[in-house]
Every structure is written in C-alpha cells, then in structure tokens.
C-alpha cells in the first residue's frame, strides 16, 4: 500500500525548489544533468575562417570546413571538407577539398572530389578537376575542366547456384540427346 501510494503520486517534473539555494537562481535556467552533458560536448563545427586582414604563405591542411576571406599563397587541403573562398579572398594556391565554393579570386589548380561552385563575380584561373560543377553567369574562368565520372557501385547480388556443365559434358549431353532421338 505504501508503495502503491508512491506510484499514484505524480512525479514532480522539476527539482524541488526547497533543495536549491533561493534568490540567486531565480530566473535562471535549471541546470540538469543532461544540459551539463551538452556543455561538455563539443560545439557544432562552423569551420575555420581566415579573415580578410590575414595573409598566409604556406601549406594549409584542414580537418574542418574552411572559409578564406584573406590572402593565401601555397596549398590548401581539406580532403573531407568544404573550402569557401570569400568575396575578399585572394588565393594563389592549389586547392584540394570535397566541396569548393569560389566567390573571390583564385589562381591555381583546384580539385573538388564532390562539387565545385563558382559564383557570380568570382575569378578563377587554373584547371578544375571535379565530379560536379556549377558556374554562375558573370563568373570569370580560364582553364580546363575535367569532370571525373564517379562509377556507381553495382548492387551486390548473391551468387546463385547455377548448374554448370563443362564443354565436353555439354557435347556428351548433346550427343546423348541425338542418340535418344535416333532411337
């Protein structure tokens, strides 16, 4: 019965206020275990940005999305990520990334394993190698375009048992059939 009464009582949704220090926490969001976990979790990745006042010479390897609005000379690589050259970006570099978006000026060969996007007023001098490309009217591009055809993997079919007869066996079967027909 004691237990039944406990079950019948609606469980309070929030922590009992009497257990909390009064005054200072009023109007503040309640801190629960789950929210503390959220705080500990890494913030969602927005990517790294090279601002328009920044100038870099050298090699850039990125393990997150990269926005370049400054000047870069060298090489840029972000194999699984997106590289965006902003409207103020001036890049003299080879770029290799999953997706590449150009709004500024790029001089160098670019390779986008997934998609290349050249926006209006962008300027790109160099060769492009990509699977997909989009170029807006008003963009300026000089160079070659090599579309890499990604082969669609064929669906794996389970090998079905097939009665295979070798050529001599087939010949024998044929001759046997012919003999039966003669009979």
């Amino acid at each position: 019965m004691w237990n039944r009464r406990k079950e019948e009582e609606p469980t309070p949704r929030s922590t009992n206020s009497s257990n909390l220090p009064t005054g200072s926490n009023e109007g503040m969001p309640m801190q629960t275990t789950s929210s503390r976990l959220d705080q500990d979790a890494p913030a969602p990745s927005r990517g790294a940005t090279i601002g328009k006042g920044v100038s870099i010479t050298g090699q850039i390897y990125s393990r997150e999305d990269l926005i370049i609005d400054g000047e870069v000379e060298g090489t840029i690589e972000a194999a699984e990520h997106k590289v965006t050259i902003g409207p103020n970006g001036k890049v003299k570099a080879g770029i290799k990334a999953k997706d590449i978006v150009v709004l500024g000026a790029v001089q160098g060969n670019v390779e986008a394993t997934d998609k290349m996007d050249i926006k209006k007023d962008a300027k790109l001098v160099g060769d492009i190698k990509t699977a997909r490309i989009s170029i807006e009217d008003g963009a300026m591009f000089k160079g070659s375009i090599d579309i890499v055809r990604t082969e669609v993997p064929k669906p794996v079919t389970k090998p079905q048992p097939v009665a295979v007869t070798s050529a001599p066996q087939q010949a024998m079967a044929a001759s046997a059939g012919a003999a039966d027909a003669k009979r």
Binding site: S134, I135, M140, F141, G143, S144, I145
Partner: peptide, 25 residues
Amino acid sequence: GGANAANIQFMTQMGTRLYSEDFFA
C-alpha cells in the same frame, strides 16, 4: 566564349575535356 554551365555540361557529357577562355574579359 567564357565558361557557362550549359556548355560545360554539354561538352563534358560527350567525354571531352573543355578548355575555357574568356576572350572578352
């Protein structure tokens, strides 16, 4: 004639490698 998506798509679908030059620019 300068790069545009339509020409790139048409020519590259034929399996050609396209060299784009913006003559007017």
